[in-house]
Structures are given as structure tokens and as C-alpha cells.
Design a binder for these strands. Structure first.
Lengths: 212, 212
DNA sequence: TCGTTTCAGTGATTTTTATCACCCCGTTTG
DNA sequence: CAAACGGGGTGATAAAAATCACTGAAACGA
């Protein structure tokens, strides 16, 4: 068993052996440095990507270049949108960027249909991925639709801690403002209030989450 | 050929004959009066529904009972979420209500997997449905994330005109406020501004859209 | 080491949105 | 017919968020 096979098996324990064989043959690993844009709105989708290691941030961009954070993809996860392009002629409606150095497994879009039909475990994975992304998007929608900025910041911090597996976030106020489509001053002031209430501790270049 | 078969064929021209036969056998038509709640957050999903005639409004509800409009399902469309419940044990994350008297074709959730595997046209329909709903949700997200209330109202009116196939919307300010999670006064004032700019005409109980 | 840049704090002001209070006007209902 | 009710208009005020202008402190490159 190759090193690659082992890695796939441990991240995707439900994949059947024949599927893993097919992956060995047709999919390719790719290392991507942190902060690389891996997908941009309007770009054609030619392959789907499973995250093996690292972290990918998925966000929406408007015409003026504003960004809006949607969700993260961690190891074992995949982008749902790249799986719904039957023909490969559709363009992406979202943008994505690596948050860390990341390794992905790239699968040519032509294999999608074939594998869906032939490998039950792949079919289940795709359906489950759809649902998971949709649910996450609904969470994001909720926070922006129903909540004020202070609560949205808390939600944002909570999510980031979960996804990065740490309570110390290395992130600037400016970045948060950008991802929530707000302004730095607003974020700074609200973070200060959170700090006053003992929920976080503010340091230069990082935020310690105490209790949210 | 039965009347039902004809109707399915005309709305879903890509469905293969064998699939339509299977539908005749296992799916059932159901008439639902206007303003009925057909799905509620937290409810178990036991069937998926294709809209044959009428209109269904899909929205998100928060803990306090606030609503937030997501999109409409018209004839030939289906809810994506109800298609991703592999086991039938998952609960709905959204709510849905008929906007008009509506006829749906109900498909037992157990048939989903079987048909996905056996009928290519069903598989394609599901994938395409998934993508369409995701895209619409992204549109909704955009407007709330990037736009002010005046633009959001315009977007809301535009969408409603498209989906209802008319330029005269029978809708109260209160309803718009609810669907955009705002308040009646705010909506009234902004609508007035739109009317002053000649984009709409306000009448009691309806809004005529002139140019958006 | 010095200038420059990046990050963050903060006051002042404006814009946007929400909330409150109360109005009028049709329609429905008893 | 009178009262009750729902839809809608509007002023005053408050709260939330955005914008502007400026500050200082750390970090960094030359």
C-alpha cells in the first residue's frame, strides 16, 4: 500500500477499495502554499478537489471586490460547487483561497459522473458534501440575516477556532472586517467590548478566545 | 397516456420513459391550498417534492420566529434539501409555504437512491437542482451581505415579478418587511422613495413594478 | 538607526436602520 | 351604523454601523 493510499484511507474511511484504486489512477495530489487563490468567481471548473491537509477558505466576492466569508474546508472535506458541474462548462460562483499550506487531491471533472454511477461510497460522499455545504451556508446566512455585528463577530471567531483547532487566532481586525464586509473601526470597537466582557483577550496580531 | 403522464412529460421533458413509469407507480400527486406550511424547520423529511403547478416559498426561520426569504420554487423545480437526505432521518433546516394553490408530485425518499442509480435523467435533474438552489441562495446571500435595504427591496421585487410572471405584486409592506427581516416603517419609506424615482407605483394592497 | 509601513485605538460625525407613537382611511363585523 | 381592525403614512428618537481624521506603537527594511 502506498503512502498516498494510506492517507486517503484514513481521511475517507468509507471509500471502497475500488474507488481508492481509481483515485490512485486518475486523481493527483497537489501542494498549494498558503494564501493562494485556488478558485475565482467566473472561472471554469475543470476539477474537483478533496482537501487532504491544510485549510481552504471559501468566500463570495462582489463586483466591487468586497469579500464575504462563507465557510472553510478542512481535511476530508470538499467543495460542493465543483461537484455540480456536469459538463465542466459551468463557472464558479465563489472564490477560494488557502489559509495554510494545503494538500489537495484533484479529480478530473469527467470522472465525477462515472464514479457516481459505479461507486456507492463516492455517491454517498458527494451527497453528504452537498448537504454539509448547504447547511454551513445556511448558518452563514442566518448570522448575516438575523444578527447584529457583535454577534456575528462572536460567531465568526467561534467558527475560526473550531476550524483551526485553536483558541488563539492569528488574525488582524482588518481581515475580520473584510470577511464580514464591515470596517476595521467597527470591528475594533466591538472586539474591545467583547474583551471588556472577558470573552476574549486582545493582543497585537492575535486574539485569544476565552469563552464564547 | 394518462393526463398525469402528459403533465410530467411537458414539465420535465428530459425524464426518460422508464423514470416516468416509475413515477406513475410510486409518486403521488398532492394538491395544497395557498398559504399552507409544507415544511417546517426541524421536521423530518420523508419525501421529496416536485412542483407541478403553483408556487412554493422557501425561507429560513430563526429561534425568535423571524423569517428570511430564500427563494421560490415554481413548476418544474424541486427542493434541493429534501434530496440530500440519504436516510430520511435528517431534519429540514428550512421552512416552506405555498404562495398559491399548488400541486406537487411527492416522491418517497426511499426511491431517491434507487432512481439516482437507475435513471440517468433523474441523476442529472438532482444535480442540476442542487446547483440551481445553491446559486439562488448565493444571490440571496449577496444581497444581504453587500447591499443596503433599498437595493435589497429592488432585488426582492424583481425576483418576485419574475417568479410570479407579473409586474403587479399583491403584497403588503408588512410582508416584505417580514421576508427581509426589517420593519414595516422602513420598507414603507424606502418604497416611497422608489415610487418617487418612478421605479414603482404604489397602490393599496399591491405594487406595480415599472422599471428596476 | 531612521524612516516607513502596518496594526490598532479613538473621537466626531453621518448614514442607515430600528423603534415608538400616533395618524388616517378603508373594510369588515356585530 | 359604530366599533374594531388592518394597511399604510409620518415625525421623533434611538441604536447600529460606516466614514473621516488623526494618534501612537510595534515591526521592518535599508
Amino acid at each position: 500500500m502506498t503512502e498516498n493510499t494510506k492517507q486517503i484511507k484514513s481521511l475517507f474511511p468509507d471509500f471502497e477499495p475500488a474507488l481508492i484504486d481509481a483515485m490512485e489512477e486518475h486523481a493527483s495530489f497537489r501542494d498549494i502554499p498558503a494564501e493562494s487563490v485556488v478558485m475565482r468567481t467566473g472561472q471554469f471548473i475543470r476539477s474537483t478537489m478533496l482537501v487532504i491537509d491544510g485549510l481552504i477558505k471559501v468566500y463570495r466576492e462582489d463586483e466591487d471586490g468586497n469579500e464575504f466569508y462563507m465557510y472553510h474546508l478542512g481535511p476530508g472535506q470538499a467543495c460542493a460547487l465543483s461537484m455540480t458541474c456536469l459538463t465542466g462548462s459551468q463557472t464558479s460562483q465563489i472564490s477560494a483561497k488557502t489559509s495554510k499550506d494545503t494538500t489537495v487531491l484533484q479529480i478530473p471533472i469527467e470522472k465525477m459522473d462515472e464514479w457516481m454511477a459505479n461507486y456507492k461510497s463516492w455517491y454517498q460522499f458527494v451527497i453528504q458534501t452537498y448537504r454539509a455545504r448547504f447547511d454551513e451556508l445556511l448558518q452563514t446566512l442566518d448570522s448575516v440575516a438575523f444578527r447584529h455585528m457583535d454577534e456575528r463577530i462572536e460567531f465568526y471567531l467561534k467558527r475560526h477556532c473550531e476550524v483551526e483547532g485553536t483558541n488563539t487566532l492569528n488574525i488582524t481586525h482588518q481581515e475580520i472586517a473584510q470577511e464580514l464586509n464591515s470596517s476595521r473601526e467597527v470591528i475594533s470597537r466591538l472586539l474591545k467590548k467583547l474583551a471588556e466582557r472577558g470573552k476574549i483577550v486582545l493582543n497585537r496580531h492575535n486574539i485569544e478566545v476565552i469563552d464564547l
